[in-house]
Amino acid sequence: MLIVKQCRIEREQRENLDILHLDGALDAYSFPRLEAALRGLREENRNNVILDCTNLDYISSASLGALIGFARRARENGGDMKLVKLSSKIYSIVELLGFHKILEIHPDLESAIRSFGSQG
């Protein structure tokens, strides 16, 4: 029997900041979950977002595209989306695609949170 590990996206709210904790793979199967999570943030006008990628083991191009789209809209509204704790494997993909120049990437959650503080 096939046991498919669903990607889990848990949202943590901290005042004007949201942290999405990702666990699993962001691929075509889990893409609707990511879209729903981002849509929820947009509808609530939450523009300061951190993506905790500690337990993320794969990300598809469509998911990367969705993150970039969200980050651009968030910046237009005075916020941003930042990524933390990418695995070396995922970072290598992001870097090869040139997205490390578009998305802000932090080594840990604390530095990402601090960076939002310094923006205000």
Binding site: D27, A28, Y58, S60, S61, A62, S88, K89, I90, S92, I93, L96
Partner: peptide, 19 residues
């Protein structure tokens, strides 16, 4: 690991598109 990650992603993209 890095070449493997690239191939995994390329194969995933093609399979997802075909599916």
């Amino acid at each position: 690991e890095f070449k493997a990650a690239q191939l995994e992603m390329a194969v995933d993209e093609v399979c997802a598109e075909l599916i």
